[in-house]
Amino acid sequence: MNAFVLAVISVTFLKGFIVKKRSYGFVASIIAVIFAFLMTLVFLAVGTFSYGIFGYFALPAFIWYRKRLAV
């Protein structure tokens, strides 16, 4: 299921590029960061690792989109 979430995030980013709408990248980066936070909690709680933790790398993307979208 974690892989499913990662897939959803990637596809959302991808769709953003295809339809050339920044909202997709913006939302995808939000979900990625939330997921990364959750996976960090999971890692701390039970020690299970998930690649979702790398979602923090979407943070700069989030800030970039935020600026462009002016929200």
Partner: peptide, 28 residues
């Protein structure tokens, strides 16, 4: 100005991604 709601709805209510995102949230 464009507001946050428009941007979020673009994606959360997307034809193909809306339901997968919903399921992802439930899983989380």
């Amino acid at each position: 100005r464009i507001d946050l709601t428009e941007i979020l709805d673009d994606v959360f209510m997307d034809k193909h991604l809306g339901i997968p995102i919903f399921i992802a949230f439930m899983w989380m």
